[in-house]
Structure formats: C-alpha cells, structure tokens
Design a protein around this nucleic acid. Structure first.
Lengths: 148, 148
DNA sequence: CCATATAGTCAACCAGCTTGACCATCTTCT
DNA sequence: AGAAGATGGTCAAGCTGGTTGACTATATGG
C-alpha cells in the first residue's frame, strides 16, 4: 500500500460518508422532519429504552452540557421527552416520543433508499452486503466521532 | 436490503470515517504539525499547482469568505502563501510552502499507517484494495461534504 | 453520617462558519 | 473605446454548536 493509495482510499471513504449523510438528511427532510444529522446519532442511542444525558454525551463524544443542549433542541421539536429516571432521582431518562420514532423510521428509509442505489454501482446486493461486513470489521468501538 | 441493515451499514461507514479522520489527525500531530482535519482537504486541492480562494471554496463546499479565513490560518501557520495570480490581477494563487508539502506528506504517511492496520482485520492487502475500488465506485463528484 | 463521586443545569465564552456590503478587475456587448 | 455586468477577494457583523467553569441535588462507600 503506497501512501498515495492511502490518500485515495481516505478521500473516497470520506466522500462516500459525507454524501451518505447529506442524502439521508435530505430524505428525512423530504419526509417532513426537520433537524440536523446529529439527531440520528442521538436517536440510535435513545432507542429503544432511552438513555441519560451523560450516557448520550459519551455516545456522541461531546460534553454532557453539549448533549443537554442537543436534548433541549430535540424536546423543543417534539422528538424526545425528559422523564424522571426510575432508579436515580438525580438523573433523567430521555426517551423518544412517537414523533421521534417516526423520524427514526424516516431516517432508516432514507438510508435504505440511498444504499439501494449502491447496488447498481457495485454490481449487486451481494457486493453491498460484502461492503457492510468489511466495514463492520474495521469499525472501532467507543464514541462516535465527527468525520471532520 | 432491509432498513435496519441500511442503518447498520451507515453506522459502520461513519464510524470508520470518523475514526480514520481522528487517527490521521493524531498521526500528523505526532509528526510535529498542528492543525485540524480541514487542512488536509485544502491541501489536496492546493497540490500540486495551487488554487484560488474561490476554487478552494467550491472544493470544500463553503463560502469564499470561509475559505479565505481558512487560508488566513494556513498562512499564519506557514503552510501556504498568497501569491499574485499570473493571469488575473483580481485573484491570488494560494500555493503550498515547503512546510505545507511536508505536512501533506505527513498526512499521507499517517493515512497509510492506519490503513495498513486494516489489512489484518480484513484478511490481507487484496481486501483493502477491493474496498478501495468499491468505495471509488460509489463516491460522488462535487464538493467535499462534512460527514456530519 | 460524613466524604466523595456522579447527574444535571446555568452562564459565559469561543471557533468556525454564515450573510451582507463593498471594491478591484475582467469580460462582453454595442 | 466605453458602459454594464460578472467575477475574485476582503471586511465586518452575527449565528450555531460546541466548550469550560461553577454550582446544586442526589447517590454511594467507609
């Protein structure tokens, strides 16, 4: 692997990631929801049983104040609500509302739509599955990180 | 392709992209350069012959004012310089300095180092090349977009 | 039951963009 | 040639989405 090839792979990966994010966002907006891409990452942690602000912060790789501001936004838009935590009076459980679930499903549909388009470029569904498995092997654990 | 699989592929792709970006950045810093990931995207457009602020702005998908501020940063850190444009007195040609080239090579090395690590997880270099080719097929044209 | 750790919020601040206004220069049309 | 509009770039102001720091309330271990 020469260094220039490494840059080419990096560029392709980040271009695909940015494009996918943008198109999922567009698809979600087209289905009648407003927001920004960060919402999706929050939703994957909040579904299915909710999470505390601190857990969400760790998942997103931001401070708990930052996560709390994001939750404020989500509450204002009606996607989540803050409930008392059943086993810890200090904490609050952030859970998806019905509208939050609907938005999550819209994101899934939009993602599936984009990825279906990849089948043509790659040759078929089998190749898409292979890509998914390869990426899963090199995907890290730990908090989500912005791609740049 | 079920919707939930689409989300899994999306999550894996964005996790890999974010992790790769972070580790390239770490590698560049470890080699004695300071900056942020956006620098790398600017460098790929400025090499090898330079570019105007407006061209850079289009490449990065930001306004020309935003690109100009980035160039201010790069000038202050000694990575690029503004020269008079040879064929247009309104424009300026932004070109990499020696230090800018050195930083670019450091980023290439860091990227190659990370990607070498993928060979183990994927089974070999051939699989890495296959991944590169698949991604190149679905990579879009147009400006770079932040992944979120 | 006290000492310390943890969950969450409020306030102030900052980085990295945006929009709007503007000037200099290039290009096109008559 | 000269006017009119398009284009390259900058300055200034403002916004968004995060940060750090200080604080309160509750939980937990000795």
């Amino acid at each position: 692997m020469q260094n220039s090839e490494a840059l080419g792979l990096t560029a392709a990966l980040l271009a695909v990631a940015g494009d996918l994010t943008q198109r999922i966002h567009d698809g979600v907006v087209a289905r009648g929801f407003e927001g920004r891409p960060a919402y999706g990452f929050a939703f994957t942690r909040l579904a299915p049983d909710g999470a505390t602000v601190t857990e969400l912060a760790r998942h997103l790789g931001v401070t708990k104040q930052g996560a709390s501001q994001l939750v404020d936004e989500l509450v204002a838009k009606g996607y989540v609500e803050r409930r008392p935590h059943p086993r810890d009076a200090r904490a609050r459980l952030i859970v998806l509302t019905d509208r939050g679930w609907a938005c999550t499903r819209a994101a899934e549909e939009a993602a599936a739509e984009v990825i279906r388009g990849w089948s043509g470029a790659l040759g078929g569904e089998a190749e898409v599955r292979a890509l998914r498995e390869q990426l899963a092997r090199i995907a890290p654990y730990g908090p989500i990180r912005p791609a740049w």
